[in-house]
Computed example of a mutant assay.
Amino acid sequence: MKKLYFLTLLATAFTFGQSVVITTVIDGTLPSDGCAGSSGSSNPKLVELYVSGTVDLTNYRLQTESNGAADAASISWNTGCDLTALGTVTDSFIYLVGAGETTFTEMYPSATPAAGLTSLPNGNGNDAYRVALYDAPGTAGNLVSVMDQFGDPLDLPVNDYSAAWCYQDSYAKRNNGVVANGGTFDSSTFTYGGNAAFASPNNTCAFITAAVPVGTFTLTTKAFNGINGLTLYPNPVSGNVLNITSSNNGAMSVQIFDVLGKRVANTSVINNQINISGLNSGVYIVKITEEGKTATRKLVVK
């Protein structure tokens, strides 16, 4: 049996440890030299990350895919911003400010921009981002895994701002309780200002700060035990089939997450069963939704 990893599942809430998620993206409309400055009009550029648990950021990168892609073969992630210099981070926000740092610190005095990094993100409103782990630092190395992604380049087959997640002169903010998506982006997991939200007369520090607070995201989410008579069996499971039943016996959708918060399965219950043959030995969180109600359970796979 492979080594098992353990999570804590609370009765009324759950969180995922050891993950890095993209929580806020801002494409500002302010000068770069302070709120009352006169240099430029497209600041600040921010990608906010949240580190849950303790993560050694060696060989992690925040990468950008610019302006969309016509097909999968055309998707091109840049080398990105190497996060190695940040070292080991525990339960903290990281502020990657690609432009307008002076203005950003004036707007958010309690938020300190990450220092010692290069190639910081500088999104123009239709750039996708991802947090990825490589097997070597800098420009070398091969992709090991994608922990989280904001935006889907395939939503923009032409270079425009038509996708639901676009944020030109605006922002996007992750909904509380949404865990790392493992590179499968769902636009419904963010709240958006809509393109041009910061156009005149809203191009002021006061307006943007009030509209987009930083450092507020939480992975804790409540009311996740709302399905009457929910049962998962066998648990622990050593075969390829997991049985899921409830008192209502309604249609159920299922998402399964590993210990990093990465979604590893997204399926529906058919004849009170799901196939779990693709899961390795370990501990998982199973999120079940039935008729608008959601519950979570810990699953052990042998």
Rank of each mutant, 00 (worst) to 15 (best):
D152E: 15
D135R: 10
W77K: 07
L46Q: 00
F104G: 13
Q63R: 15
N59V: 07
A132W: 00
V131Y: 00
G80L: 09
A85E: 13
D82R: 12
A69K: 07
Q168C: 13
T84K: 11
A114L: 09
A115N: 05
A72E: 14
A164H: 08
A136Y: 01
A72H: 03
P109F: 14
F104N: 14
L86C: 04
L156E: 13
D148F: 12
V89N: 06
F150P: 13
G80H: 02
G138A: 15
V55N: 08
T102P: 00
P121D: 00
D71T: 09
D82A: 09
N78M: 07
G68S: 03
V158S: 15
N159L: 01
D160Q: 05
A163S: 11
L117C: 01
A72D: 11
Y108H: 07
N122P: 03
G87V: 10
V51F: 02
D135Q: 07
T118C: 01
E48N: 02
I94S: 06
A73C: 03
A85Y: 05
V144T: 14
T64M: 13
N126I: 05
S92L: 09
S119D: 10
N122R: 04
G100W: 02
P109Y: 14
D127W: 01
Q168N: 15
A70G: 14
E101P: 10
E65W: 11
E48V: 06
P157G: 11
G98S: 09
Y161V: 12
D135K: 07
E101K: 11
I94F: 02
D91G: 07
Y95M: 09
T102A: 15
T112S: 13
C166E: 12
M147V: 15
Y171A: 10
L154G: 07
L133A: 12
N142M: 14
L133M: 13
Y129H: 12
L86T: 09
L62T: 00
E106L: 06
T139P: 06
